[in-house]
Amino acid sequence: MSQLNSQQAAPAMQELKVGVIGGGFMARTHADAIRRAGAQLIGVRSNGEQSTRQASAALGVPGFGSVEALLAQCDAVHVTSPNALHAEQAASALAAGLSVVCEKPLATSAREAGELALLASRSRAVASVPFVYRYHPMVRQARAHVQEGKLGRLLTVRGQYLQDWMHTVSDSNWRVEPAKGGPSRAFADIGSHLVDLLEFIAGERIVRLNATTSIAHKQRGAVDVDTEDAAALIVQMASGAIGTLMVSQVNAGRKNALTIELSGDRSALEFKQEKPEELWIGKPDMSSILSRQAADLSPDAARLSVVPAGHPMGYLDAFAAFVADTYAAIRREAPDGLPTFADGARACRLTDAVLESADSGDWIDTDD
């Protein structure tokens, strides 16, 4: 077994052996980022023999007969399986001494996610969660704008993450079933990105929230639907700033409309994921668009700006940068802003709070 422990030097990048658990779109996305980072993708195990064969063909790597067999050959593993399997598979990898990249949600409950974060903190393994929108250069520029005091005292926040891939009654996939996807669907899937990005840019936490959720279609195919299609939140930040967040997977025409706006007493800023090359900066006397040009960026934003201005960067570049930072951490470097299992557990805590508030109608405290 090729394991990392306190007695072993971290392998050079080209020697890092990486496996993928799961198939489908996210497995392909992870595989692309693994290869772009220069590591060896040695194999895949999906949920069953047929799906493993399909994933093997899609990724161009051997299929393994079990998760255990794959783990025995790896230094690190990427978990892209259905949500309900994340906690068990990530824990198994950590127990085997491997570094782990685990898709969000880290687990289907805050309790399980917290246990995983604790397990990761007690090991020397690197354990990260792909909150990859942190890796757009203009997100890092927005964060630097806040850190440098240019925003001023935070007054209000506004965010939305809108999609339409579950818009019609005929739209369905495994996430609809709580046994596979967990008790939350839209918020666990994309709301987790929204709250992570908000707290990352703002540099402070949501301390309480009030939420309501809705289900667009009570039945999809032969499956009764118990998980939300949309969630609307009122939030209060640690500084006292207030705001609104909207998450939906049933907004017609919206494909991946993730937007964050922070307004302070000196300026405001807005980032739109569908226009990742730009950052809007607002002031009472003038508003402007800052485009991605390395000479105008903070050091961390410039670090992630890997092609010249005018050559668009996007989602796959952000994903590759996240994986590269994970592997840098495996080499005992300390890249700034790497989302860890603690961040994954935080998102699960907020997801549980959304469900609790929607059920009770109460404000829920969320400052851990």
Rank of each mutant, 00 (worst) to 15 (best):
A10L: 10
A12S: 12
M13I: 15
Q14L: 02
E15P: 00
G19W: 02
G19K: 05
V20C: 07
V20D: 00
V20F: 08
G24S: 08
F25P: 00
A27F: 06
T29M: 13
T29S: 14
D32H: 05
A33D: 01
I34Y: 01
L41C: 03
V44S: 11
E49M: 09
T52Q: 06
R53C: 05
S56M: 10
A58G: 01
A58F: 04
S66R: 08
S66C: 12
C74R: 02
A76G: 05
V79K: 06
V79H: 05
S81K: 00
N83D: 11
A84Q: 07
L85W: 09
L85Y: 12
A87P: 00
A87M: 01
A91V: 04
S92L: 15
L94C: 10
A96P: 00
G97D: 05
S99M: 13
V100R: 09
A110K: 07
R111W: 11
L118C: 05
A120R: 04
R124M: 08
R124A: 06
A125F: 02
A127N: 02
S128N: 07
F131H: 06
Y133T: 05
M138K: 04
R143W: 10
K150N: 13
R153T: 13
L155R: 15
Y161M: 13
L162E: 03
D164Y: 09
H167C: 05
W174P: 00
W174M: 07
R175W: 04
V176K: 03
A179L: 15
K180H: 11
F187V: 04
H193K: 03
H193C: 02
D196M: 09
A202E: 05
E204G: 03
R205Q: 09
R208N: 12
R208Q: 15
A211I: 00
T212M: 09
T213C: 15
S214K: 11
A216P: 00
K218V: 01
D226M: 08
T227L: 09
T227R: 15
E228V: 05
D229E: 05
I234Q: 15
Q236N: 09
M237T: 01
M237F: 05
I242P: 00
G243I: 06
V247E: 01
Q249C: 07
Q249I: 14
A252H: 05
K255E: 13
K255C: 04
L258T: 01
I260K: 04
I260S: 00
R266G: 02
R266Y: 01
L269C: 04
L269D: 01
Q273L: 11
E277R: 06
W280Q: 10
W280H: 10
I281Y: 03
G282E: 08
K283R: 14
D285N: 06
M286A: 15
M286W: 08
M286S: 11
M286F: 11
R292L: 13
A294R: 14
D296M: 10
L297M: 11
R303V: 02
S305I: 08
S305Y: 03
P308A: 13
G310T: 07
H311V: 14
H311L: 10
P312E: 10
A318W: 03
A329K: 12
P335W: 09
D336T: 12
P339T: 03
P339I: 12
T340G: 03
A347F: 04
A347Q: 09
S357A: 11
D362K: 14
W363M: 14
I364R: 12
